[in-house]
Amino acid sequence: MRRFVRENALTLFFLLIFLLALAGQAVTGMARLNHDLVAEGAAPVSLLAYVTSGDFAVDVAENWQSEYLQFFLFIVVTVWLVQKGSPESKQPGEEGAGSDKDAMVGAFARAGSPRWARAGGIRRWLLSNSLGLVMGVLFLLSWLGQSVAGLSAYNAEQLGAFEDPVTWAQYVGSAEFWNRTLQNWQSEFLAVASMVSLAVFLRQRGSPESKPVGAPHGATSVEN
């Protein structure tokens, strides 16, 4: 167990703080909602009722979809786009998917390579693009979840105000939906741009996300 924890500490750490943050969001979100309900003369809701509501689901899903979109785009566009001097980028001139030798597939697969790395056709293509594909699917699923949960929460507000509910297509095409969505997207895109560009000139000793402290500012990726 100790070896498992040590070898997977990074994943376990982020999963733990994810669960703590999610629990904190649930408790504070319920407190905020109950404050508003009591102020309006309505009965407060339980924690279970809140975490199974559209209000909670849409807040969670809209953050998940923006995060998965960020990683999906970063994984895919860094195949073709570079940033000189950034450890997050390949070196200029190395744009593209690279050769089979670089990817260690086919005849260049090694003893410990995944089985599909030696295969051809659709199996090799799926393995070669599996990370981007899964991140893209997770983005689409969380985006769909956001739209469904948001529709539920929005229609609850509509009915509470004695207005007609809207369809899913109407909600997805509304300013309400895209305002919530783009608020998250713009912050994710700015964060990625900041990380890529600031890592050209700034360092964090011991971090694999940083170049060595003494590396030239113009050194890029494995050039270090």
Rank of each mutant, 00 (worst) to 15 (best):
Thr11Val: 12
Phe13Tyr: 13
Leu15Met: 14
Leu16His: 14
Leu20Ala: 14
Leu22Ala: 11
Ala26Asn: 04
Thr28Trp: 05
Gly29Glu: 04
Arg32Ala: 14
Leu33Gly: 05
Asn34Arg: 07
Asp36Gly: 06
Asp55Glu: 14
Asp59Ser: 11
Ala61Leu: 15
Asn63Trp: 13
Tyr68Trp: 15
Phe71His: 11
Phe71Met: 08
Phe71Gly: 00
Leu73Arg: 10
Phe74Val: 13
Val77Ile: 12
Thr78Ala: 04
Val79Ser: 02
Leu81Trp: 03
Gln83Phe: 03
Lys84Cys: 01
Lys84Glu: 05
Pro87Thr: 02
Gln91Asp: 02
Pro92Cys: 02
Pro92Leu: 02
Gly96Ile: 02
Gly98Asn: 09
Ser99Leu: 13
Lys101Gln: 12
Met104Asp: 01
Gly106Ala: 06
Phe108Ala: 04
Arg110Leu: 02
Gly112Phe: 03
Arg115His: 13
Arg115Trp: 15
Arg118Glu: 04
Arg124His: 08
Leu131Trp: 08
Leu138Val: 09
Leu141Cys: 06
Trp143Ile: 09
Gly145Met: 03
Val148Ser: 03
Ala149Phe: 03
Glu157Gln: 14
Phe162Gly: 09
Glu163Gly: 08
Val166Glu: 07
Val166Thr: 12
Gln170Trp: 11
Leu182Met: 13
Ser187Leu: 11
Phe189Met: 11
Leu190Arg: 10
Ala191Leu: 13
Val192Pro: 02
Met195Asn: 01
Val196Thr: 03
Glu209His: 01
Glu209Asp: 03
Gly214Asp: 00
Ala215Glu: 04
Pro216Cys: 05
Ala219Thr: 08
Thr220Leu: 04
Ser221Val: 01
Glu223Arg: 08
